[in-house]
Design a protein around this nucleic acid. Structure first.
Lengths: 194, 194, 194, 194
DNA sequence: TATGAATGAGAATTCATTCAT
DNA sequence: AATGAATGAATTCTCATTCAT
């Protein structure tokens, strides 16, 4: 029962933070929609802020696990990039609240450099950057890619992934699905003779 | 003097909304930092919300003008795309507050479908989409591009541009400048024999 | 074990009430510092208020016993006064928490005339007043003192004792010890030819 | 009108803090009894704590002025001591709220060494101590007093004054007035051949 | 005896906004 | 055009206390 309610608070808060933003969500609203009383929030968490942090921590934990589970051995390096893009699209489709929560709230949360979330997000960025860099370098070495300069391209591809994520999460529902086009776009841009 | 103060209110508010978010900025703070008293805000504007709307209107007005001023006649179609990307990077560099304001606040503001900003932003999107589509179609027709399917590619390129904008505006200051790489990335992806 | 915990609660509460005041001490804090859980407080006591009352009762019980143990037969009457002052100084030195608890909390607690503590404190005052009056009257009768009017002097001496207590308990730690001076002060004021 | 309401808030708060203690007085209660709304408290003061500090500042300011106005030139030194005691009794009678406020709240407020009040109260103590010391030393020098050791006696007399103040402010209403007895008590204790 | 979970009642404080001038 | 004073409506958070076990 206990775990139950604590979990309900977190999922309700995730939903609300994603849809209305942290600042526009009141603790009372969280409590009511979670079917508990306000003080219970403060029994389980230090305060509104900690609820937020806890959610972020949990999202990125899952995210990290998904990244770790990506196949390490693939026929081509581009397959890895393909996988990475698909993973993000998959996330946007399957856990839209989590994604929107981050997009909508992190700009302001991350203003404060010392915010707990800062470290979590930074770490995540590094992981993806490393992942991409390794791909590109290997692909370049094997002659699969013609991707220079690596560091810049990593950033550009990251921007593309984030842009797509943002579009899927915040934009209007599109009838068309441009995912394959996006992957193809990348392929043409970096794979030799493609 | 009057125009002066009204303008000061707007520029102060822009700065604050960009850095702290709409919800974390109080009318008192705007007034104080603008060197006026609170009631004056209400003399010039209906309320906090109208200040925000006014800012958005003004930003997009400028933005639209910049888009209109892009050269209509260019040697190649890709040059237009090049120009479009450069224009956005230029904006990010020269008017960072405006950009951040939109990125940080619009997700939550645009939840409310009927919000005045909604229409403004939608219209803008259409303009760019049309611009890009026209480029691609012309380029395809002339044999300059090999860009299919157009509709999807338009979205992908929009995502890339937005992703770069977001990175420049919200990310840490990067020492490297990946703009040319980004443009090159696009070229390889769509220009034939490039 | 049971007695143990109940006692631990009381001693912890005494400490906290003395140092932070009744209102600034939460039941949670008492519980935590006593190494028990909150509901246990309510098993042993009706509520926070009863913990306080219980402490007061216990303090004054000890205090009364000390008063009763003062020697009834002394060479001079002033010796009794000497003893009384010393007893209070001794209390301030040996049981500072108890003293501070009373000084810090009773003013507000005793506003409510019907408070249980009221009766306890009143009774105590009477005991001391009687003790002092008897001394002075006997000393006057025997020619040892020149203390007139007795009723007033009793109050004045009580004030002096309380003032010293307060100083010792709440004041900064003094290097000097003025106790003997205080006793001497009284002697000169009431003992004939001193 | 403005000064009016601000002043009303302060006087109401003084009354309430004196009678119920700081912690047992709510901002709502202050507002209601002062005939204003709660937010007005926050317009005029930073918070509840600042209201308290402001009151303390004002009380001690008045107190200091009264001390300064004591006659510097008197026939005997004891007359100065007489005046000092009378001044305190006068204060207790004419401004009982102020006195009770300090007695009831300062113990807990002054726990926090850095509290603004700390400095104010400390300064006051010094002034009185200096006043008394000068009296005693001059009186000893002129042969009027036989008051040794001066430092200790200063503390003892301070304790007596404080004890009397406390009695008058917190004790039950006494029918008898023991003030003259108190002064006489001091005279006998320190004036030679008295 | 003992506790993890839960709550009703209220506390201080904030804020967008307005009024009277 | 401008402001000092004022407020209604929330908002986050705390706390003594209780319930179910």
């Amino acid at each position: 029962m206990a775990k139950n309610k604590k979990h309900k608070i977190l999922s309700t808060a995730t939903q609300l933070f994603a849809n209305q933003g942290f600042d526009n969500t009141t603790t009372l609203q969280i409590a009511k929609e979670a079917g508990v009383t306000e003080p219970l929030l403060y029994y389980h968490f230090k305060g509104k802020e900690e609820i937020f942090t806890e959610i972020i921590r949990s999202i990125f934990q899952d995210y990290e696990k998904m990244l770790e589970e990506l196949p390490r051995e693939t026929e081509t390096e581009f397959e890895k990039i393909n996988n990475l893009i698909r993973l993000h699209i998959h996330m946007a489709e399957n856990r839209p609240n989590e994604g929107r929560l981050i997009l909508a709230n992190c700009p302001s949360k991350l203003k404060n450099e010392s915010h707990t979330c800062q470290k979590i997000v930074d770490r995540q960025q590094e992981i993806i950057v490393d992942y991409l860099r390794e791909c590109l370098e290997k692909g370049n070495a094997s002659g699969e890619f013609d991707a220079q300069p690596v560091d810049h391209l990593v950033v550009v591809m990251l921007c593309l992934i984030n842009g797509i994520l943002r579009k899927k999460l915040l934009g209007k529902k599109e009838k068309i699905s441009y995912e394959y086009t996006a992957i193809d776009f990348c392929r043409k841009a970096i794979v030799k003779h493609s």
